[in-house]
């Protein structure tokens, strides 16, 4: 117990304490200088009637869905493909991992340059040479979120690939040999050997991805500031704006508490629904 005390203290001071304090602040109005004023559920009433919150919630769910649809399968497929490659086994995972090394802010500013909506923009020039576009990318409310998903997938895939590859190395080689001897092609090897082994990791990564994507922040902040027409305003960006642009900490913590509640419910439902799936 004595040995655990330092760790426990760190958790109390830097994790649980602030979480509790955040909960308390969601019932207060404060500028952090004057004495606090208790306002009951006023902050919750305010954020729930703010038309921006509804749109931000929809945008956040939209991003989560898009990221699941496109962002989730890409690293799985990439990892399976890489594990099939023989020779230079260090090279391809390294290449896949490279985008992760780029600092997010640098990557986003680079992509903002790529996404220049004029016909002379980089992506538009490339696509223009095969007769496509020009596209508005971030500057249209319809394509802004998919554009962000594209960048986020590029930036995040490397990490997931490494994890899936590690899981795949634990698959015994004789299983593949047995499958090959039984005449199984690539598709059947993936379906009957690889996927069952990845199941546990896949479920965990799915949950982490849902929690992570529902907290999308850096990309909309730097790419679009929540625009165009509020189409990339997410819950976390709104919390940030409440707190650090408007100085309204009550509203910021109230919305944080609501987001945490939603995530807790999603996680619990996910756990219940998938109980038993993760073991063979």
């Amino acid at each position: 117990m004595l040995f655990a005390l330092p760790v426990l203290l760190v958790f109390v001071v830097f994790s649980w304490g602030p979480i509790l304090k955040g909960l308390v602040m969601s019932f207060q109005q404060t500028n952090l200088i004057d004495p606090v004023k208790w306002v009951g559920l006023e902050n919750f009433r305010y954020v729930l009637t703010d038309p921006g919150v509804g749109q931000a919630a929809l945008n956040t769910v939209w991003f989560t869905l898009l990221a699941l649809l496109f962002g989730f399968p890409v690293p799985v497929l990439l990892a399976m493909f890489l594990s099939e490659l023989r020779g230079r086994s260090w090279l391809y995972p390294t290449l896949a991992y490279l985008p992760v090394i780029t600092p997010p802010v640098v990557a986003i500013l680079l992509w903002r340059f790529f996404y220049d909506p004029s016909p002379s923009g980089m992506f538009n020039s490339i696509l223009g040479s095969v007769g496509l576009g020009p596209f508005l990318w971030l500057d249209s409310p319809h394509s802004a979120m998919p554009s962000i998903v594209l960048e986020a997938t590029w930036a995040g895939a490397g990490n997931a690939v490494i994890i899936y590859l590690a899981a795949l190395t634990s698959v015994r080689a004789d299983l593949y040999e047995a499958a090959e001897l039984d005449g199984a092609g690539v598709v059947r090897r993936v379906w009957h050997v690889m996927l069952p082994h990845l199941r546990g990791v896949l479920l965990l990564m799915l949950l982490l991805q849902v929690i992570g994507t529902m907290q999308l922040f850096t990309e909309p902040l730097l790419f679009t500031g929540g625009g165009p027409q509020g189409s990339t305003m997410t819950i976390l960006l709104l919390i940030y704006n409440y707190a650090f642009v408007n100085g309204d900490y009550g509203a910021a913590t109230a919305l944080s508490v609501l987001l945490a509640l939603v995530l807790a419910v999603v996680s619990a439902v996910f756990q219940l629904a998938t109980r038993g799936w993760s073991t063979e």
């Binding site: 304490g17 602030p18 955040g22 982490l208 992570g212 994507t213 707190a243 944080s256």
Partner: peptide, 20 residues
């Protein structure tokens, strides 16, 4: 998926920042 983990941490740390 560290980036997502970082985002999770960033999200959870909003109240922390406020407390700090």
């Amino acid at each position: 998926m560290n980036r997502f983990a970082i985002r999770c941490a960033a999200g959870l740390s909003v109240p922390f920042l406020l407390v700090a």
